[in-house]
């Protein structure tokens, strides 16, 4: 059984890819199973179901994928893909977590071999790290 893949969905390709690089770097895992799915195929702002399914396939290592999202159409697009049933690798989870902090926690957990539920839980706990 491989590692859980982490997919970061943002309206912006730069945000998604940069947060993926940041999370891998902070996790200290150069080949971390994380990738971005940001913006539209033409480079514009938005959410592309196509880019999300491609990203999920890229990081799918047989253990499923945890998907973190920013807002609005990113949330709805991933929910619609999950409802479809056959668009994302199994098991796939939409993780309720802040994008940046959640991505770091998810990547650390995934790189350490946690299953998809544990990865989702680790990312969700990021909501509890108070800043003030």
């Amino acid at each position: 059984m491989g590692r859980v893949g982490v997919v970061l969905v943002s309206h912006s390709a730069q945000v998604a890819d940069s947060v993926a690089a940041l999370a891998a770097s902070l996790a200290g895992v150069p080949d971390a199973p994380v990738t971005g799915a940001g913006g539209l195929p033409d480079g514009g702002l938005g959410t592309s179901a196509e880019l999300v399914t491609e990203a999920a396939a890229r990081v799918d290592d047989g253990a499923g994928v945890a998907v973190l999202v920013d807002l609005g159409s990113a949330v709805l697009t991933v929910k619609a893909l999950l409802a479809e049933g056959d668009e994302l690798p199994e098991p796939a989870r939409l993780v309720d977590a802040p994008l940046v902090e959640g991505a770091v926690a998810a990547v650390v957990a995934a790189a350490g071999g946690a299953d998809v539920e544990a990865v989702a839980a680790a990312a969700g706990e990021a909501y509890d790290y108070r800043k003030v």
């Binding site: 539209l40 514009g44 938005g46 959410t47 592309s48 179901a49 196509e50 609005g72 159409s73 709805l76 697009t77 929910k79 619609a80 893909l81 409802a83 479809e84």
Partner: peptide, 21 residues
């Protein structure tokens, strides 16, 4: 519906896609 989900690029894609699918 499937086409709208994959091509619209905004929230209306999954919403209209879900309606029709």
């Amino acid at each position: 519906g499937r086409t709208l989900v994959s091509t619209v690029g905004g929230a209306s894609g999954p919403l209209y896609g879900t309606l029709l699918r």
